[in-house]
Design a protein around this nucleic acid. Structure first.
Lengths: 350, 350
DNA sequence: TTGTACGCGTTATCAA
DNA sequence: TTGATAACGCGTACAA
């Protein structure tokens, strides 16, 4: 009894049918007479057989039903961002009909033996962002011929991408501020490189993270010389810290701040309140993402709404299509400008 | 060329060695002469062989290297909570040395064909929380004989649990308030049932969520009759909404609020500020979790610090042990009381 | 150090 | 509607 798990052959024997018939009872791919079905099911119950072994079935079918999701660093950091969470939700939703689940994988790990894209039984991979580390390990994966999709990143030619038109979107916010009469505008950016270098972005600085660079370009299309401050991540506290330096000197403070995320914008608003400034009377703030921010009320951010869930869904759909043998297609999503109560006319100079 | 992927036999043939020798070159389990190794590797390169197929390898050794993590509803909601995120981090870390990754699974899904604990090739499963739906589907899984561990929930006898001593911990906070002289204390709780029923918890109300019930018991050990308000989740906004009703009537407001999470506590503090109350002079607030809350500064919550990452790690370790054939052992973690600047002596009655 | 032989548990294909 | 056959691609005793 403690020997070995029952297999489908055992069940078949017990039910006096062939293994293939027993298999069909479980898969339902071919009609089976009610009588045999019941006999098989009864045999399974007797033997404590819980259904086909997923591993063996996968091998036979050549599909594991698993999509690898490669995230940069630790899991905690990726899920801190509401946009990422929605994205994962959309992704999960889109791959579920394939019978696929999401396997969380990290691009790098100091842990011996950690699972990787090469050792894990994945049918396809979705890369979130794509840094240098990742790009290297990608060759192995492509050699294996599994479909790959990149979200907000670039994994080289031939790898379909799902991303936002960040530059165009951010330009909308900047134009909105220009129309309100703002001339003195500062920008609070997301992290500019893997290291998360803080502080003022001088002309020579290389911005290796696409999203950040593109949004900055969009803002600078309208305000070419605007001061830009880099943060190390998209959190309220990061926005707060950056904005404190912006508001430190009453004589040189901007009348509007373009934040590259809603979380950062929330921090900027908090810094403004700290400094005794009213939003939007004294300072206008725009965000990016259009996600609900816990604790932001009563403010409604003026922001660019991105369809984060849709982004995940698009990536999932791309993966599904490639699994069907279709040609990969990149997707470029656009954002919608949403007016909130955090932006208003530039204050008359005092 | 476009035919079929190369297999290890192809490589072996190309290198003039036997398949087993080629296999050994990749697994490294047996010494191989340098000459043969290089020949095999060269052959692999020629054929574009990217290493053993994970699926076949898994079937052969009976291990997929995948641990299923079953979360209640959507991924978004679970990762909204910083505690859950840290927990996942710890879990990922603990299972990585096994060469295992985490497969995200939902306990219920309306999507046809969605992957489940029964259809996915998992070596083990970790359940986060455990509601009725889940408990039912568990029988199938147990029939398969894979190890299961439950975090903060109860999956029935024989399933090892990893959890906190919530009651004892929450009592510490209540005792702290009692020592400060508070007599009029209110409690803001986490969700009490799957539906997320809001509002005052009357004596008869059934609390199906263990964490909530246990923490409430801890608080009531000290303040038996305290008013308790249920929220629908652990967010700042939920805490804010609940606390607004607490502070609405100036004559009947509590001098201290016990919140069942740090996020809720942050909302309570915000509500206090809104109502023109000073923390902790006019009202003391305690939290639970001890996680960094984005945007809480300059407050440091008086709270119970739980080792969230450790909780995940413990679950991972339990899984690892069971995979080694060891006996499952439940783990009960304790919290540490941490004094912040959100609690102080009860104000003299006016 | 290398090779032989077999089976892991299933399912697609085809014929009956 | 059912059954026989043959892989799926690999790892591992065991023998040489």
């Amino acid at each position: 009894m403690t020997n070995r798990r029952a297999t489908i052959s055992d069940v078949a024997r017990e039910a006096n049918v062939s293994p293939s018939t027993a298999s069909v009872v479980f898969s339902g791919k071919t009609p089976v007479s009610d009588a045999t079905r019941e006999r098989v099911l009864a045999a399974a119950a007797t033997l404590g057989y819980a259904g086909p072994d997923p591993l063996a079935a996968s091998l036979r079918r050549g599909r594991s039903g698993i999509v690898g999701v490669v995230v940069g660093s630790n899991l905690n950091s990726i899920f801190t961002d509401p946009v990422q969470r929605l994205l994962m939700d959309g992704l999960a939703e889109a791959v579920a009909p394939l019978g696929a689940g999401l396997l969380l994988l990290r691009s790098t790990s100091d842990i011996e033996n950690a699972p990787t894209l090469t050792t894990a039984p994945v049918d396809a991979a979705v890369l979130i962002g794509c840094d240098a580390d990742l790009r290297d390990s990608l060759d192995d994966v492509r050699a294996r011929g599994i479909p790959i999709v990149v979200i907000e990143g670039d994994a080289g030619p031939g790898v379909p991408r799902v991303r936002l038109d960040n530059r165009q979107a951010q330009r909308l916010a900047a134009e909105h501020l220009r129309e309100l009469g703002h001339t003195d505008v500062a920008i609070v950016t997301l992290r500019t490189d893997a290291a998360g270098t803080l502080g003022r972005i001088e002309p020579g600085r290389v911005i290796t993270i696409d999203v950040t660079r593109e949004r900055l370009e969009g803002a600078r299309d309208v305000y070419p010389g605007a001061l830009a401050l880099a943060t190390s991540g998209s959190t309220i506290d990061d926005g707060l810290a950056a904005a404190r330096t912006l508001f430190a000197d009453p004589d040189r403070r901007p009348t509007a701040v373009i934040a590259q995320s809603d979380l950062l914008a929330t921090g900027v608003i908090r810094a403004a309140e700290e400094a005794g400034l009213r939003v939007p009377e004294d300072v206008s703030v725009t965000g990016f993402d259009g996600v609900p921010v816990d604790g932001l009320a009563p403010f409604r951010l003026t922001t660019l709404v991105q369809a984060a869930t849709e982004k995940g869904r698009a990536a999932g759909a791309a993966v599904a299509a490639m699994l069907e043998g279709e040609e990969p297609a990149s997707v470029l999503l656009t954002c919608e400008f949403r007016l909130g109560n955090t932006s208003g006319p530039a204050a008359a100079p005092h």
